[in-house]
Design a protein around this nucleic acid. Structure first.
Length: 576
RNA sequence: CGGUGAGUAGCGCAGCCUGGUAGCGCACCUGCCUUGGGAGCAGGGGGUCGCUGGUUCGAUUCCAGUCUCACCGACCA
């Protein structure tokens, strides 16, 4: 490819509205341009990287036995009404009507469409297991698109759907996909973790997320420093605390705590440690159901855990009116004692081990001390509802401690069970001629997001440092002075040789000063750079610079192609 | 959805308070010069100042509405 005839509109200045490095660099390197909020054009260079990654995904999906197809992005409302998600999915689902006033949506995911196809076509146990995948554009009307391709509204996704005769066969399909995902991200040279995750609006029984580690990641994850346990913080289990139950049997006592509304205030005022207090929160469902949650004072509630524990669709903090209605108290002095309304009191498991505590008295400016569960207040039930913290003991192994990371979710695998197949009546006949419900799994990879995450993890102050497997070109050839005939003809020859050897090479033949070319080449992150200049040429040599390490080699002209192809082969080789 | 801020040349911004000929840097075009880390000189093109309405002799500037975009937040009890 001739740089002068190609299209790489680089930008010197950092665009003001790009927050994260990958977004800035993708704009500056001329990979993407914004069309509307969360909607991007993929320029030629960006597309090349995207295609590279797509092909790795494609190869590994094919290797695992999945079958590629393509589904439409516009989907009829009926399917979504049938699965029940038309009402459930909310505003993220972009809905519209056609000229006949029939309702449609832009597909944010394709469980309904694929299940509809499968229920029509898959009738026998003999046709399974089967796994369909596609690489396709999706649309989700995100609350707040940001970070460029990281959280766009329109985005490219690989999604796969497996269909099996029963739960254990489905587990096998899940494992195959899990392994394929490991290979995919390993092949890209990414530093990532597979973590246990919540299933969210997709539903299903269990799932793992694949997280590329990066400080700019939107998710917090924990992993054990001793065993293989790793989980999204949304999901991470809290280890059981064994607390010393103190035998102190002081009577419950009310104390005045004027204007002390936070745990920190109260603990400091009463001169007790925060872990001797109980934090009381009130949550409401979308239908107005209320529930009280109790946590150790220094712990944080995990709303998702509470929501899942309750089986609610939505959860939010109760309003001051709702709180007053059930406790008779203003916010800041809540507690489980003397409730006005009979609402469930869910206490975190840790509270079970607490003996004599400080908590709100449900009365303005008053807290209780020496409150004892069983004597002074009751708990409806205990559950794991707190957010884990770095340094917590591992919930799985005896010796480990949890470490915390930020991660970018690039892949997600779910065991769906029969959620969609039941709703859409996707069944088959088993060997006995008996009708059975199909077991499903679904598996997504954010294509654009993975490329962005790779940049997030591989860059320096000069620009992108593409891992070779997803680099838009393997190698560039820079002619230092295009007016120098000897330099140009040598550069052209190298370019042509490399091309014939199957190297994807970008020939920077522009009539620009060398500095400009070097800066652009660094910015767009081509892994290898051959520089042809008059000085080196006089000795029959050119220079090769490795972008990632900065290493510079002087090569005789006739060794260039061999050296380059060797480096590329090594970088692309994938050991299982 | 709530809060804040911003829309002026392709990009980054000034001007607006105090109304009267729209400016700077980069980019772009032409010429000269230059060629190993975003050079220099000279000349040049490019704007319905987001949109709609109002006030005014006159609005980029003041007022109202509207659209778009960005950032922050969606917590604490």
């Amino acid at each position: 490819m001739l740089y002068s005839r190609y299209f790489i509109p680089t930008i010197k200045e950092t665009p003001s509205d790009a927050e994260v490095v990958s977004h800035q660099l993708m704009l500056r390197a001329g990979m993407i341009r914004k069309l509307a909020s969360g909607i991007y054009n993929y320029l030629p260079l960006g597309l090349r990287s995207i295609r590279k990654f797509e092909n790795i995904v494609r190869e590994e999906m094919d290797r695992s036995g999945a079958i590629e197809m393509l589904m439409p992005s516009v989907q009829p409302a009926e399917l979504w009404q049938e699965s029940g998600r038309w009402a459930f999915y909310g505003k993220e689902l972009l809905r519209f009507k056609d000229r006949k006033d029939a309702e449609f949506c832009m597909g944010p995911t394709h469980e309904e469409v694929i299940t509809d196809m499968v229920r029509r076509e898959i009738k026998s146990y003999r046709q399974m297991p089967i796994n369909f995948y596609q690489i396709q554009g999706k649309f989700r009307d995100e609350i707040r698109p940001r970070f460029g391709l990281m959280r766009g509204r329109e985005f490219i996704m690989k999604d796969a759907y497996s269909f099996d005769v029963d739960s254990s066969a489905a587990d096998l399909s899940y494992t195959k996909m899990f392994d394929a995902y490991m290979r995919i991200f390993e092949r890209c040279g990414l530093n990532f973790r597979a973590v246990e995750a919540d299933t969210g609006s997709i539903g299903g029984s269990s799932s793992h997320e694949f997280m590329v580690l990066a400080d700019s990641g939107e998710d917090a994850i924990v992993s054990c420093d001793a065993c293989r346990y790793a989980a999204n913080v949304e999901k991470a289990e809290s280890p059981l605390f064994t607390a010393g139950y103190d035998s102190n049997n002081e009577p419950l006592q009310k104390v005045s705590t004027p204007d002390m509304k936070t745990i920190a205030d109260v603990a400091a005022f009463l001169n007790v440690a925060a872990d001797q207090t109980v934090k009381t929160l009130v949550y409401a469902s979308d239908s107005g159901e209320l529930v009280m949650a109790l946590l150790r004072g220094d712990h944080e509630l995990n709303e998702l855990k509470l929501k899942n524990h309750l089986g609610w669709d939505e959860i939010q903090m109760a309003t001051e009116e709702q709180i007053f209605a059930c406790t008779g108290s203003p916010v800041g002095f809540l507690g489980p004692i003397g409730l006005v309304m009979d609402i469930p009191v869910i206490a975190d498991n840790v509270v079970q081990g607490m003996s004599s505590v400080v908590l709100g008295a449900n009365e303005k400016d008053v807290h209780c001390i020496n409150a004892r569960r069983g004597r002074d207040f009751e708990v409806t039930r205990f559950a794991d509802i707190r957010t884990v913290e770095a340094g917590d003991a591992c919930p799985r192994c005896a010796s480990g401690k949890l470490e915390m990371w930020r991660g970018i979710e690039v892949g997600h695998v779910f065991k769906l069970g029969t959620k969609y197949s039941k709703a859409l009546n996707a069944t088959y006949l088993d060997a006995n001629g008996k009708e059975q419900v199909i077991f499903m799994g679904c598996y997504g990879i954010g294509i654009g997001r993975t490329v962005a995450a790779a940049i997030e993890q591989n860059h320096d102050e000069h620009g992108i440092i593409f891992p070779l497997p997803i680099a838009p070109f393997h190698c560039s050839v820079v002619a230092v002075n295009t007016k120098d005939a000897a330099v140009m003809s040598a550069a052209e020859e190298i370019y042509s040789h490399l091309g014939k050897s199957g190297v994807e090479v970008l020939f920077d033949d522009r009539d620009e000063r060398p500095g400009v070319k070097f800066k652009d080449n660094d910015l767009i992150g081509i892994p290898l750079r051959i520089v042809v200049g008059s000085k080196g040429l006089a000795e029959g040599k050119v220079e090769m610079k490795i972008r990632a390490t900065g290493e510079v080699l002087s090569l005789p002209l006739d060794e260039v192609t061999a050296t380059v192809t060797q480096l590329i082969d090594a970088a692309l080789a994938y050991k299982k």
